[in-house]
Simulated scan of single mutants.
Amino acid sequence: MAIVYSNENVKHFAEKFLNETEENKYKAIEEIKQWLDTLPHLRAKKDQASILCFLRGCKYNLELTKKKIQNFYVMKGERTEWFVNRNPRVPEISELLQLGVFVPLRKFSNNKLVVIIRTAAHDPKVHKQDDVFKAGKMVLDVAIQEYFENATVFGICAIFDMTNISLGHAKQLPPSTIRKAVFAWQNYYSRPKQLEFINAPTFINVVLNVFKSFMSDKLQGRVKVHFSGLESLHKVVSKEILPFEYGGNDCSMAELVQYWNQKVLQYSDWFVEDEKYRAQV
């Protein structure tokens, strides 16, 4: 099956920045597939698109790709609290989806998929942090499937809205949990290219320093805190694609939340099938 680009610009970008060419693409996919055949305990997906995600994220470095694939499927096997029973209809997940803890946009920033992560939209007395992570990853998986090219070729711009963050929220993120979260960011099948923090409290650097201690140097360099308000954010993410709650000219957050809630429900069978693909640990 041929992997088709939406236009020539995408093809040129993939070749220039990801080392993806017609010559190496299918050869690399086949090599990774044969390697996965020797590791049945990983129970990894072997279709072209699934392998392609990791190749693009590692710029076709085969050894890095293999390491990331192993890390990803072992993580799925170990983090059952995030990757098992991903049912969007159960109350603890449905409530978080309706709160909009993780909301992708439907327009792109320099072709990157943009997601707004509302770190304090949930009540820490009611909702478990693991369920917040589970709901967020469910929405992310759906968004990657829906916008495969943008997410895997150009990567992801994450906007962390820290409005109303409290001590209760902070207590849900001990260093052990932060380490797991950062590991997931760095080993998922899409690349975080921007980490933009807005509406941050004065103690943000204390929290971020813990996060950064688990990040690669490259990922640390992608973190930016916007202390001067939304005007600073608009310099790196256009107002044209942002919801009006963030000073933008697009639709409302409520519309986006409703849209993605429906999308996630449509992927219910996909989540059941996806759960099969995780390492035996």
Rank of each mutant, 00 (worst) to 15 (best):
A2E: 13
I3V: 14
S6W: 14
N7F: 08
H12G: 07
H12I: 11
F17K: 15
N19H: 10
N19C: 10
N19K: 13
T21R: 04
Y26R: 08
K27H: 05
K27L: 09
K27W: 06
I29S: 00
Q34I: 06
W35C: 06
L39S: 04
P40W: 12
H41A: 13
L42H: 01
C53D: 04
L55E: 03
C58N: 12
K59N: 06
L62F: 00
L64P: 04
K68P: 07
I69M: 03
V74T: 09
M75F: 06
M75N: 05
R79Q: 13
E81T: 05
N87V: 00
S94V: 04
L96K: 03
Q98Y: 06
L99N: 07
S109H: 12
S109D: 15
N111Y: 12
V114S: 07
I116P: 00
I117K: 10
T119A: 15
H122M: 15
D123N: 15
P124K: 08
P124N: 06
F133C: 03
K134E: 00
V139E: 08
I144L: 08
Q145C: 14
A151I: 14
A151Q: 12
C157L: 11
C157D: 14
A158P: 09
A158D: 12
I159K: 14
I159P: 08
L167K: 07
H169D: 01
K171N: 03
Q172D: 15
I178T: 06
R179K: 15
Q186E: 14
N187C: 01
N187K: 07
Y189R: 11
P192I: 12
P201K: 04
N205T: 09
N205H: 13
F211I: 06
F211D: 03
F214S: 09
F214G: 03
Q220K: 14
G221A: 05
K224F: 14
L230I: 07
E231Y: 14
K235D: 12
K235R: 13
I241D: 09
P243W: 08
S252Y: 13
Y259A: 09
Q262P: 02
L265S: 11
Q266Y: 15
S268V: 07
D269L: 07
F271Q: 01
E273Y: 10
E273F: 07
Y277T: 03
